[in-house]
Write a protein that binds this DNA or RNA. Structure first.
Length: 1032
RNA sequence: GGGCGGAUAGCUCAGGGGUAGAGCGUCGCCCUUACAAGGCGAGGGUCCCAGGUUCGAAGCCUGGUCCGCCCACCA
């Protein structure tokens, strides 16, 4: 590849060029070819849920592809022998309807005009024409599927598996044919399974009552129905056996007003609820599921009055030939004409509709094939109970169980042409022969010719076999031996019954083993408004439209980042844009590295001796990111994995480390340079590998470019062949050691922002700490502060600094204090306001924590480590408060601490900053506040408390005026002053000030710094104020 | 009629008995030689309501309210 020679990158990331490059590269080199003979590596297999062959992928498919590809690439890089098996589903009804529609449109013909054979030819042609689009889409998404193993549910091999399963189940008595009531779609002209019936919200309908006169003329029985047309099929009237009102008429007969037939009055405790309506029910065994059962209990006739086309049959007498809804009106008229109408009431009812056509379904009596499901369901329940298959998120286990425990026999025959024709043949005598291959004569009587059952099997029948039929079953293939059971079934929770449950049953029955160890059910993808994407709503998005615009990597990353467990996923384009920017960020980080790798040595450990604290810090952070990412992936927490890498790359590697490393990279010190280069390459390479499963294209591209530059042994010619970063111990000491420096930079930046000091205006700072460890950190690596915070001059003190307050701001950090000198008078009011906010925050935190510690129950009952932590925390807060108080008092002029004898200045770090206009006044040998003095101030401050703040501020304003007068040449910047003015009112409402105080500098500083171990240092006490009750 | 999920910053959503988070958006300052698809900073919360358990509840329990979703043959 020519790009391997490139060692420079374009300024911005252009996904189009890059993405076109790597798909073919991976495929040509067979990276995704699974090797069933390789037993040296542990297997990891996923079968792709087969999309509808004539369909086009939507974002739900993109999510499926993304998550599975993440798993596959991650596992592959982690040393697994991976198989990801693609394929498509023939999707019986859906496909047939598409082709029929097209046929109607272009040729004005129905499938019957063409005949079965010709129609099927057309469907196959359609499949060939459009079936490839799915593959193209998957490839565009970067899906690492093993295309050599692509399957189609109507392939010869899979069809053989279907026949085998059907025949075997039939032999075992688990497939049977029976005349029963089924859900029939008059539009699609086929039977449906229970699952294909959709119950929408209750629809407004009517409950119509009419009277059946008794044959003996003694009285009448009033019944009610929501479906008047079915009364023509009534073959009885039922009442409750205990119902006194009807005791006398049970056993008698009523006369049908429209046909004259006589109908028995039966007593049935199951069907009839005496409290509903009149307590009498018309019974229509051939058109209602309850009535069907009732009819069987009482041996009632089954009278079919509605035909498969939805029109009334000849049996319907006066309304024969009418459409069922026409008949509904007509029946009411006819009954009314006889004076038997007893009124109509509005009534809410649930209506079953066809999942495909939305047509109102008709319960119809017909011969269909069924799978006896209970014997198959039992092992499938047990397998989950025993943990052989695990659902993630766990809550789906209940859903699965509830359905499985209440499962009905599965109607598997469909009156369609497109699909697996049922391998059953009928002889002239009507005997059924079920066989794997076309039989020549009746298995029972030996007669011929035989006629094959015209129906086909439910699409989901073949889908149920997918995990093993695709691997060559019924043959005992090596592929099955290596890759079955599959490792993970990843699919949407909407098909848990249609597909997951049925795969479980079939897998267990025919393979004797669950089809997958883990079922990960992902959320549904919705549009920005939270609506389900559907063709009818017109909000379906083709993933390719997005990949074209933003790049496949951005789309993939977005989908992964939004896939939290247990909730639907709303896709907003802002989010995708954000992750496209992330790709660009990664691109530029690599670009930066390439520009700064002259003299890089690839040998392992090179430059280790020159490493700075910053180097050790990012190495530790890298390891932490690796650990967290891997842990998240193992738990299927895609959003956490994505979020971890994102944060690491952007906010640690880019925002911090690259900036930190510039000094060494640009500098002359060869040792340090080498160390920084090595560290940068290590961190970047880790980032690329961590990210690869999520963003395969850009990471592969950058891998190659980087590889060409560094020429190391550890750089295989594809990132896919590189190992996924390994989990390992984190150098927590390195993290801790560097923390004060990060915190200092944050603090200075915060002061700048708050005080409106331009980012590059050089500043002089003092750092004061009594902690030798922290002091050591500043000694060794304090230089980074100069660069990242534009500091020109730093002095270190062993204790609190007392340089003249009016020209400085202070930030109290954990274990040290930073004084920022401006070289001119500070905006005292602004600084005091800033301190006031912070002070109040400290007060609040301290109050809440002290209250806790004062509670004997807390001390006695809470875990000792929690108590100890709070004690330390309280101590720290008190310290900070004290220091801040001193500063505030100095600034406000309210109290000026006496100078202590003897300078404690320990060190001065000069930073060469060419722009430095005004070297700060050479530091006076700074005086020191002794601990005693500090304590005194602390206690004073504590007493003065919050109420004093405004007074102090007022004092400060006076002081400010004085200063301004005294130093006319050093007026604060106009803007700063204006800002100070603007801020004044904000101080007044206590509520607002409190709120603001919560956002005080230390917290912010901590937030900017990065997570530290389990308990992030950034989390400075921040109990909501309302607890303290101070806000009122 | 059952069952399941959700309600947290302006928006979209993570989190989850011990110091309330992210992305986007908003505001301010920066064209700092990797990146303006950028950098730095700031503002922004009654974690739906009411009880309860607990030393401690946004989280756990109970009961509500309002949104989703799934299942179910009530004429």
């Amino acid at each position: 590849m020519t790009e391997e020679k490139r060692t420079e990158l374009a300024k911005g990331y252009e996904h189009r060029d890059v993405e076109a490059r790597w798909g073919p590269f991976w495929r040509e080199r067979g990276f995704f070819h699974a090797d069933e003979k390789d037993r040296s590596r542990p297997p990891f297999s996923i079968v792709l849920p087969p999309p509808n062959v004539t369909g086009s992928l939507h974002l739900g498919h993109a999510l499926t592809a993304t998550l599975q590809d993440v798993l596959i690439r991650w596992k592959k890089m982690s040393g697994f022998n991976t198989l990801w098996l693609p394929g498509t589903d023939h999707a019986g009804i859906a496909t047939q309807m598409i082709v029929e529609k097209e046929l109607k449109k272009t040729e004005q013909k129905s499938r019957h005009d063409l005949g079965r054979e010709e129609f099927l030819r057309r469907v196959w042609a359609w499949k060939e024409k459009y079936g490839s689009r799915i593959g193209e889409q998957h490839k565009a998404l970067g899906a690492g599927l093993d295309w050599e193993r692509e399957r189609f549910t109507m392939d010869e091999g899979l069809s053989r598996a279907v026949r085998e399963v059907f025949v075997r189940l039939h032999e075992e008595g688990l497939v049977y044919r029976e005349k029963k009531l089924i859900n029939w779609c008059p539009d699609c002209h086929t039977a449906l399974s229970d699952l294909e019936v959709e119950q929408k919200d209750a629809e407004q309908g009517e409950l119509w009552s009419f009277a059946y006169p008794l044959v003996d003329g003694s009285t009448e029985v009033v019944v009610a129905t929501t479906r008047p047309e079915t009364m023509l099929g009534d073959t009885a009237v039922a009442v409750h056996p205990d119902d006194e009102r009807y005791r006398a008429v049970v056993g008698k007969k009523v006369r049908h007003p429209l046909t004259g037939r006589e109908l028995p009055i039966v007593a049935d405790a199951i069907l009839v609820d005496p409290k509903f309506g009149t307590g009498a029910v018309k019974v229509t065994p051939a058109h209602d599921f309850n009535d069907f059962e009732t009819g069987k209990r009482h041996g009632l006739a089954q009278l079919t009055v509605i035909g498969p086309d939805g029109k009334m049959t000849a049996e319907a007498g006066p309304v024969a030939g009418l459409d069922r809804f026409e008949a509904r009106k007509r029946v009411k008229e006819l009954v009314a004409e006889q004076g038997l109408d007893r009124g109509t009431k509005p009534h809410l009812l649930a209506i079953g509709r066809c999942q495909r056509s939305q047509t109102i379904l008709e319960p119809l009596l017909s011969d269909q094939w069924y799978v006896r499901i209970e014997p198959l369901a039992r092992p499938a329940i047990e397998a989950v109970e025993q943990g052989k298959t695990r659902f993630i998120p766990e809550q789906w286990t209940n859903t699965y169980m509830a359905w499985m425990r209440n499962i009905h026999d599965w109607c598997i025959s469909r009156q369609l042409w497109w699909g697996h024709q049922i391998p059953a043949w009928y002889c002239p005598d009507g005997h059924v022969t079920v066989a794997r291959e076309t039989p020549s004569a009746c298995g029972l009587c030996g007669k011929g010719p035989l006629r094959q059952d015209e129906d086909v099997l439910d699409t989901w029948f073949s889908s149920a076999l997918w995990p093993f039929s695709t691997m060559g079953w019924p043959d005992r293939t090596e592929t099955l031996g290596t890759f079955y059971p599959t490792s993970v079934m990843e699919t949407g929770h909407d098909i848990i019954f249609f597909w997951v449950a049925r795969m479980m049953m079939m897998g267990l029955h025919f393979m004797g083993e669950v089809p997958f160890r883990t079922v990960y059910l992902h959320p549904m993808v919705r549009d920005e408004k939270g609506q389900k994407m559907s063709k009818t709503k017109g909000n379906v998005i083709d993933p390719l439209v997005i990949t074209e615009q933003y790049g496949a990597d951005a789309l993939r990353f977005t989908l992964a980042a939004l896939t939290a467990q247990g909730r639907d996923l709303k896709l907003a384009k802002e989010r995708i844009e954000g992750y496209r920017a992330f790709a660009n960020k990664l691109w530029n980080a690599t670009r930066f590295a390439l520009m700064n790798l002259e003299g890089f040595e690839a040998s392992p450990g090179a430059g280790a001796e020159g490493r700075t604290a910053a180097d050790r810090w990012i190495l530790a952070r890298t390891q932490r990111a690796v650990n967290e990412t891997v842990a998240a992936l193992e738990a299927f927490k895609f959003n956490e994995a994505a979020g971890t890498v994102y944060h690491y790359v952007w906010h640690e590697l880019c925002d911090w480390y690259i900036e930190l490393a510039k000094e060494a990279l640009y500098g002359e010190d060869a040792g340090r340079k080498r160390a920084a280069q090595g560290t940068l390459v290590h961190a970047l390479a880790a980032a690329l590998r961590l990210l690869h499963p999520f963003m395969p294209f850009i990471t592969e591209e950058l891998w190659h470019v980087l590889r060409a530059k560094v020429k190391g042994d550890a750089w295989p010619d594809s990132i896919l062949a590189a190992p996924y970063p390994a989990v390992g111990p984190v150098d927590e000491a390195a993290e801790r050691a560097f923390q004060p420096l990060l915190e200092t930079i944050d603090a200075i930046r915060n002061v700048r922002g708050e005080m409106n000091i331009p980012p590059r205006a050089p500043l002089s700072i003092d750092i004061a700490t009594e902690d030798p460890v922290i002091r050591g950190a500043f000694d060794a690596d304090g230089g980074v502060i100069a660069r990242l915070a534009s500091v020109s001059h730093t002095e270190l003190y062993a204790a609190q600094s007392t340089r003249p307050a009016p020209t400085s701001a202070v930030a109290v950090c954990s274990g040290f204090e930073v004084r920022v000198h401006f070289g001119h008078a500070v905006d005292v009011a602004a600084e005091l306001a800033r301190i006031a906010k912070e002070f109040e925050k400290l007060e609040q935190d301290l109050a809440s924590i002290e209250k806790k510690l004062a509670n004997p129950n807390f001390v006695a009952k809470a875990p000792p480590e929690v108590v100890e932590k709070d004690r330390l925390r309280a101590q720290e807060l008190r310290e900070k408060r004290g220091k801040l108080g001193v500063h505030r008092d100095m600034l406000s002029g309210a109290e000026r601490p006496p100078r202590a004898a003897g300078a404690d200045r320990r060190d001065v770090m000069e930073t060469n900053n060419p722009n430095d206009p005004s070297k700060p006044t050479p530091a006076q040998p700074a005086s020191q506040t002794t601990m005693e003095q500090a304590q005194q101030v602390i206690s004073t401050v504590a007493e003065v408390g919050k109420a004093a703040v405004s007074a102090v501020v007022a004092g400060a304003e006076r002081a400010f005026e004085k200063i301004e007068k005294a130093m006319p040449a050093r007026k604060p910047a106009k803007k700063a002053k204006a800002k100070a003015q603007a801020r004044k009112p904000a101080r007044k409402p206590a509520r607002k000030a409190t709120k603001a105080a919560r956002k005080a500098a230390p917290r912010k500083a901590a937030r900017r710094s990065v997570k530290q171990g389990k308990k992030p240092a950034r989390k400075v006490a921040r109990k909501p104020a309302r607890k303290g009750g101070q806000r009122r």
